[in-house]
Design a protein around this nucleic acid. Sequence first.
RNA 1: CGGGGAGUAGCGCAGUCUGGUAGCGCAUCUGCUUUGGGAGCAGAAUGUCGCAGGUUCAAAUCCUGUCUCCCCGACCA
Length: 584
Amino acid sequence: MRASQLHLPTLREAPKDAETVSHQYLVRAGFIRRVAAGIYSFLPLGVRSMEKVKRIVRDEMDKAGAQEVFLPSMVPAELWQESGRWQQYGPELLRVKDRKQADYCIGPTHEEVIVDLVRKDVRSYKQLPINLYQIQTKFRDEIRPRAGLMRGREFIMKDAYSFDADQAGAHKSYKRMYEAYNAIFTRLGLRFRPVEADTGNIGGSMSHEFQVLADSGEDAIVACDHCDFAANVEKAPIADQAFAALDASVGAARAVETPGAKSIEQVCKVLNCKPEAMIKAILYMVDDAPAVAFVRGDREANEIKVKQALGAKAIFLAEAEWFAKATGLPPGYLGPLLAAGYDAGKVRFVADFEIKGMVHAVCGANEKQQHLVDVVPARDLANLAYADLRMAVAGDSCPRCSGKLQSFKGIEVGHVFYLGQKYSKAMSATYLDEQGKEQVFEMGCYGIGITRILSAAIEQNHDGRGIRWPVAIAPWECAVLGLGSESPISETAANLYRDLQSAGVEVVFDDRDERPGIKFADADLIGYPVQVIVGKRAAEGIVELKLRHTGEKLELPVAGLAGRLGRAIAAARAGATLGSADLN
RNA sequence: CGGGGAGUAGCGCAGUCUGGUAGCGCAUCUGCUUUGGGAGCAGAAUGUCGCAGGUUCAAAUCCUGUCUCCCCGACCA
C-alpha cells in the first residue's frame, strides 16, 4: 500500500479526552475515532490490527475444536427473563423496545442465546461435547466508560460456550480452552499470565483470567516466585500462618482516651504505635444489615472475601452515619470487643485470621474517644468469627508452596469460566443420556476482549514516540520511507517496496511528498515493527533499517534485503518482536 | 450515583473575573524556497463561542435551565 493512498490521519496532538497512553496513540496514529462516550469508529489501520487479532483467535479456537457461529446482538427479553437476569442485571443492560413495544436488550454477553440455540438442536449425548463461539459486538452501558478501547460501552468480544454431558467432560473442555488461550496470547506477541480469578456475576465455580502484564493495568495480581501459582488479588488466598504462643505477661486489655483519633494514622500518633499493631474496622452494609470486617491496621480488606465469609449476596461500604444509627456503635472507635450488655445481634463481626495471631493489639473500644490497648485476640476474642479476609500483597507466602508472592499489574483480556449448570438448569437445557434419561448440560464460557487487546498491547508496548506493535498484530509489518523523489532514491524505494511485497511482507511505501521528519514521526507513532529508510546512501546501494521494538538502526545493502526481511518477519509472526539478532 | 473539571475553527488552547460583536499555534488550500527527526516566507479559507431561555442599547462574557464530554470512586472482556 502506498501511504499517499492510505486514509491515515495522524494527529500531532492528542484530543484532550484521551489520557491513557493507549487511547492517545490509538487516536493520534489514526486507528480509531470517538463517536460517543465509550463508542468508537475504526479507521483502516484499526481494522487491520483488529482483524489480525480475530484471525489468530479464530485459528486457535478452531484448532481447539470450537465452531464459529454468529448470534444476534439484539436479544428478546423473554430469554433473559427465563434465566432470571432480566431482573438481576442492572442499568448496564441496555433495554430497548421495538415498534410493537416488545422488550429487547442489546446483548452484553450471550449465555441465554446460546443455551436456547443448543437446547433446541442438541438432544442426545451423541452430539456432545460441543463448543460454539462467535465474535460479536457487545454493548454494556458502563457506569463509566474510560481509556478508549480499554473499557468501551460498545466493544468486540469473542465468546465461546462449551456444552458437556458431565463435569469430567466440562473440565476437559475448560482445560482445552485454557490451553487455547495460552496459545492465542502467545501468538499475539504479548507478555501475559493466566491467573486464578473470582467468578463475579457470571457465576460458576472455576475461573482463570488472562492478564496482559502492564504497569498501567487496573488489576493487581500476585504470582509465586517458585511455583506456577498466580491469582488476582481478589481471589488469592492467604497461606496458613503460624501463630506465636500466647504471652502470659501481657496485662489485661484496658481502655485509654484517644480524643479525636478516628483513623489508624491518628491513633498511631496518639498512642505511639504502628499500624500493624492495630485492628482496623471496616464498616459494611451486607444485604442491607450492618456488618464489620476487622483486618490488621496495615492491611486492606478484600471485599469479595468478606462477602463470601458472610455468605452475602450484596455488599457495600457503609456510610458512617447509617451505621451508627443502625448499631449504636461509634464509627472511628469500633472494635471487636463488645461491652457487656450490648445486643450483639445488631451487627455481624468477622475478623481476618491474622488478627488471631496478634499478641498485643490496639483496637477501638466501642466508646467515643476511646481505644483498647493490650488486647490479645486469642485470649480476649475467643468467640470472634475468623476468616480469610485480607488482600494478598507482595511478600506473602505462597498458598501452594514455600515460595513468596510477587505482585504485578495486569489488564484482563481473557476470562475462562466453568459454569456448571447455572444457565442450562435455569433454562431447562437438557439432553438424553445413554439410558434415555434427561440430563442437564454442563457448561463453560470463555471470553476474549478483542478490542481491548489492542489497548492492552499498546499499554505494554510503547515508548515516548508511539506504538511498538508485536509483529503479529501490527497494522502493517514494514514501512519503506522514501526520503526524496529524485533518482536514485525513488527508484530504490519503489523497487524495494515491490520486492518486499513479493517476499510476502505487508508493507507500506511512504511515498508522500513530505519532509523526512514527518515520515519518521508518523512511522514511529504508528509503530511499524520494521522501517526501511531509503535516503542519502541509496546511490551506493545502502539503506537504513530501523527496528521499532529494540530501537536498533543499521545500515545494510539493499541487495537481498527483501528476502532477509521476508524471512525474519515471517518467523516473528508467530508471536515475537523483531531485533537485529533475528536477521540473517 | 457521589466528588472534581471542561465545552470557543479539524486538533490543542487564549479570551469569560471587569459585557462593546472572536483570536493564537498546529492542521487545511495556493505560490515560491526548502528536504535525515513534525521547515521558512507570502497569501487564503474555516466559527450558529454545546443548546434553550432571560437580563441589557449590546452577551463567548452576567443569570436560569438543560445537554454532552473527561478525570477520581463503586462495576467489568
